[in-house]
Design a protein around this nucleic acid. Sequence first.
DNA 1: TCTGGGGTCCTAGGACCC
DNA 2: TCTGGGGTCCTAGGACCC
Length: 434
Amino acid sequence: MIPLAKIALVDCNNFFCSCERVFNPALQGKPIVVLSNNDGCIISRSEEAKGLGIPMGAPLHEQQEVIRKNNVQVFSSNYTLYGDMSARVMSILREEVPAIEVYSIDESFLQLPHNFDEEMARALRSKVLQWTGIPVCIGIASTKLLAKLANRHAKKTKELTGGVFDLTNYWNPEAILADTPTGGLWGVGKNLAQRLEGMHITTALEFKYADPSAIRRSMGVVGERMLRELNGIGCLELEEVPPDRKGVMASRSFGSPMESLEELEEALANHVARAAEKVRRFGLLATGMEVFLRTNRFRKDQPQYSPSIGATLERPTHATAELMTTARTLLQRIYRPGYRYKKTGVQLTNLVSEEEYQPGLFDLLDPAIPGRIDVDKIVDEINRRLGDPKNPVITRASQGTDRRDNLGKAWKMRAERHSPHYTTDWNQLPEAKA
DNA sequence: TCTGGGGTCCTAGGACCC
DNA sequence: TCTGGGGTCCTAGGACCC
């Protein structure tokens, strides 16, 4: 029998709190918490803080009493520090295994050699702790979903297992599944847990033996994939190279709500600048943009309005001023007076690489007429250059859409099908025959 | 009164094409 | 002129993750 692939999930314990402790060892054994960006929520808790009943994600103001009474140390988050610590941990892991996927700032999946056992995992754990000061837990299984589950068990039974648990080597793995509520599975949130409960599925074990077609009907492909992963059939690959970024977002909540368009514009300008800078840093160009507004969702007594709107940009860009023009237009379209806005943000979407971007159809757009593309003109021009009226490259442009990328796709498809002259570079299209 | 930010993937439904 | 099946592509919004 071919042994199943072994996958480990390494997860740093209370990562942000652990980082703070590395730089201030006096905090060992004391209750501490780390706050979100605006110091609004508690996003990391030490074991001692968890013991005090402080929940994950709790608003700080709700916990002030407990914090004061128990002398809990409170930290604003310091992402530079955490990023740096994360890199150190990951580089140690990378040296020990054939392949690694860094899944988040404090977690990574490892591809393990077949002979990798719990002893080796413990040694790895010690090494990370000794070299970086960060304690981790390691779960081992045959699929990513099960590795997550094994890690959860390792964490829960840290005292007993030493923070390492190998599901593939456990005498009764189904007992662990039976002990895991569906909500504890990776990918099952509140909503899906409820839906599963409606099907009388409350544990990972019940999920494992559920009817696949029923799962498919009620949870779609996501559910079916989880079902397979639970049965040891790997559906989720190890992604060593992170896929290209799809979008970049910048948003913030306001300390106090804003009502006027001018205030919102100012806030948005900030976000556009930050997002554009990030895009430049990645060496990318944005071809689309989304802008959104949110009222305070916690104020049920106030009217709610959370619009969002998207647009395709005139041309791919990462220039702040250019982006701001579009952002302002979009904001004006969704802005309604009379609401108390609590948050706004911008997302730059459909990013393309600066290097790979070849100006093509975009050059045919008339910048004097924002948002307008003369489809017929482009079609005629392409056909004219190819010079065969009986067999035009494009017989009809896709109607009812002004999406440039769509047009580009239509062009490409047809060109491939019909033309020996196919090229993605507009400038290389042959001139029309005399 | 105070309650984060930045992501990904999937689906439903509309518009359009052949 | 009417009708249907089989597609693609897009947007908005839901759900989830860390």
